[in-house]
């Protein structure tokens, strides 16, 4: 398996995409909309031409500004999964898949992605999840050397999304192809990829495993993207720990070392909720009225004051959480990450 190496600059309307990527396993680029994620995929597929840089798969060069090499999209072996799947509406499922390549493997692909029974259907008659599988089969029929997936789950409703995410992850593992996934959802990125890159205004802010991004975010932006609560304050070392004084005079204790202006980060799943101040080992407490209670799958996200806690539906029910309740959110000093500003 050859790795994809890409380092290029691609001017967009309001900023330049300027990236260096090495894709061997599965890499997800996450970032807000308009960060240049889709443009990155287009540049690698040959649908957009960068001004400088080099894109290569193993030893075969697809683009090299210095020597003027630019392979056209049809000359690069990429499997591109488009955001709305871009299935040809005038062709049947089988004809769509055969567009990428013919042969005995088409039947195999139809079987493998469980769309064999749909082979005579038109894209307009398929559900979202079925369309996604047809698009994937079509991209694989090309026998690609690299997979490019643009928001592969964004066009799906929340219910289908969970199952498709699991299926897609298994498919990607089986294929063992370098894959570059673009998504605005950190949860999707963490579920699908070994490595996650956070991209803002065309630049890579941080690259690492999902765990690394969560445990050591380089900026409040990355932390917020990974789902963390971000509290700004002033840090001072005292007695082996760091005390961060927030704007409302609340003190947040962390075991991370820092001085001066910092962002204190705590993830919703590190928070525990109680009706009164607990007498356990946790050093950090925020007491506030609950402003929102949102169920997410088997969990409930409870927002009180500046923090959001995520607890199991069962705990929330036991506590009888309702909007307007006065609750205490607590967490340990070791769960507080500090990012120096």
């Amino acid at each position: 398996m050859d790795a994809l190496t890409a380092a290029f600059r691609l001017p967009l309307r309001s900023f330049d995409v300027d990236l260096t990527l090495d894709v061997a396993g599965t890499l997800a680029l996450v970032g807000p909309s308009g960060a240049g994620k889709s443009s990155t995929l287009r540049a690698i597929a040959g649908l957009a031409r960068p001004t400088t840089g080099r894109i290569a798969l193993g030893s075969s060069v697809w683009f090299d500004a210095a020597s003027g090499v630019f392979l056209r999209p049809e000359e690069r072996r990429v499997g591109f999964l488009f955001q709305e799947y871009a299935l040809f509406p005038h062709l049947t499922v089988r004809q769509n898949v055969e567009y990428g390549g013919r042969g005995a493997r088409i039947d195999e692909l139809l079987e493998r992605l469980h769309i064999g029974a749909l082979e005579d259907a038109r894209p307009g008659d398929l559900s979202g999840g079925e369309r996604q599988r047809v698009a994937l089969a079509r991209a694989l029929a090309r026998e690609p050397d690299v997979l490019l997936l643009d928001e592969p789950l964004a066009a799906l409703d929340p219910h289908t999304r969970d199952t498709v995410r699991v299926d897609l992850r298994a498919t990607l593992r089986d294929l063992a192809l370098p894959a570059l996934i673009v998504t605005h959802d950190f949860v999707d990125a963490a579920a699908l990829a070994d490595q996650v890159g956070v991209i803002v205004d065309g630049r890579l802010v941080q690259l690492g495993s999902p765990e690394e991004l969560i445990s050591a975010p380089v900026s409040p932006f990355v932390a917020r993207f990974a789902g963390g609560n971000v509290l700004h304050g002033h840090a001072r070392r005292s007695g082996g720990v760091t005390a961060v004084e927030l704007a409302d005079r609340t003190l947040v204790i962390s075991t991370d070392e820092a001085e001066g202006e910092v962002a204190a980060i705590v993830y919703p799943w590190e928070l525990t909720l109680a009706r009164a101040l607990p007498s356990d080992s946790s050093q950090n407490h925020v007491q506030a009225h609950v402003t929102s209670v949102v169920p997410v799958a088997n969990r409930v996200r409870v927002t009180l004051g500046a923090v959001t806690a995520e607890v199991t539906a069962e705990s929330a029910a036991r506590l009888g959480v309702r909007e307007g309740d006065l609750l205490v959110a607590s967490w340990k000093a070791t769960a507080t990450r500090l990012v120096q500003l």
Binding site: L47, R72, E74, F80, R138, R142
Partner: peptide, 11 residues
């Protein structure tokens, strides 16, 4: 996008 898809599929 259909044109882009066709190109990436080798046409």
């Amino acid at each position: 996008t259909f044109v882009d898809a066709s190109r990436t599929l080798g046409a």
